[in-house]
């Protein structure tokens, strides 16, 4: 009986370790490759510990293209999206949560429909539209379509609805204007939801590859993921060590963020997925 139990426990722990390995090894392998020499990447069986740790791979990767420009573009685009989303979502969520007005349900349904339209479906017409506006290959083309977020409106509306009516009445008796009610009472109360949403939006747009790929044609507006993906086409054959070094630049900040804010990030994705 005892031995049986011990065996089960051992099996359980081994399987858990195996699971962790399945998910961690690729990242470890990425890190190992990123500091190898070219010759070490093309040996079989593979080398686990490189002879010398070549940090210059990162410099090589970074200098193989205008990566500083890409980084700046990524930062501009992502943060512009976050700020604009905050500015459009909060009033819209408040109106949907707290006012009754003509066609409110229809307009809300319209918002919810957008939730189900993937960018992969509409990139072609939007591309043509942007081309006629002359904003292709600019930051605007990467920011504008995401200046609002149906999902955010939906979530924040839920959380605004939970604020008791009494509180708003108290504020009205305190002579607070509607705007003041929003930013002094509603927004502070919905802070966890707002942080969750912003975190979710940040990761989504920081990582986004598809939209910048189709909307940009030059380095002046390309973002980091597009730049990193272009490392596959480096002249003179495939340079896995450089590619992995480039990807480390993209992945490590997110993984560090995940390490420190694991709880919130998981909550952001699971919560947004379930609700």
């Amino acid at each position: 009986m005892r031995i049986h139990q011990l065996f089960l426990k051992l099996l359980n722990v081994t399987s858990l370790v195996l699971i962790i390995l399945i998910f961690a090894t690729p990242f470890v392998w990425m890190a190992v490759t990123s500091v190898k020499s070219l010759s070490e990447t093309i040996t079989f069986p593979p080398v686990w510990i490189p002879e010398t740790i070549r940090f210059e791979n990162f410099t090589l990767a970074w200098e193989s293209g205008p990566f500083f420009r890409y980084l700046v573009n990524s930062l501009i685009v992502t943060f512009s999206i976050l700020i604009l989303q905050f500015l459009t979502i909060v009033p819209a969520a408040y109106a949907f949560a707290r006012y009754q007005f003509f066609a409110d349900r229809t307009l809300f349904a319209l918002t919810m429909i957008t939730l189900m339209i993937p960018t992969q479906l509409i990139f072609l017409p939007v591309y043509l539209q942007f081309s006629s506006w002359g904003i292709l290959d600019t930051h605007l083309a990467l920011i504008l379509p995401f200046a609002a977020n149906a999902f955010g409106i939906f979530m924040l509306r839920q959380s605004f609805k939970q604020v008791p009516e009494e509180l708003l009445e108290a504020a009205r008796l305190d002579q607070a204007s509607e705007w003041k009610i929003i930013y002094k009472i509603m927004v502070p109360m919905a802070k966890p939801t707002i942080i969750t949403l912003l975190l979710f939006s940040f990761i989504t747009h920081w990582n986004d590859y598809f939209w910048p790929l189709v909307m940009t044609t030059s380095d002046s507006s390309r973002t980091l993921p597009v730049g990193i993906a272009a490392l596959t086409n480096v002249e003179g054959g495939v340079a896995w060590h450089i590619m992995m070094a480039g990807n480390m630049i993209l992945v490590v900040p997110i993984l560090i963020m995940f390490f420190f804010a694991q709880r919130q990030i998981i909550r952001a994705f699971v919560y947004t997925g379930v609700k």
């Binding site: 500015l87 819209a92 339209i117 072609l124 539209q129």
Partner: peptide, 21 residues
Amino acid sequence: RPYTMIAPALLVFLLFFIYPI
């Protein structure tokens, strides 16, 4: 008031999601 509050978001949806469809 409610319409002005939802207008910015709705404009984005209409221009970049509904109209393109």
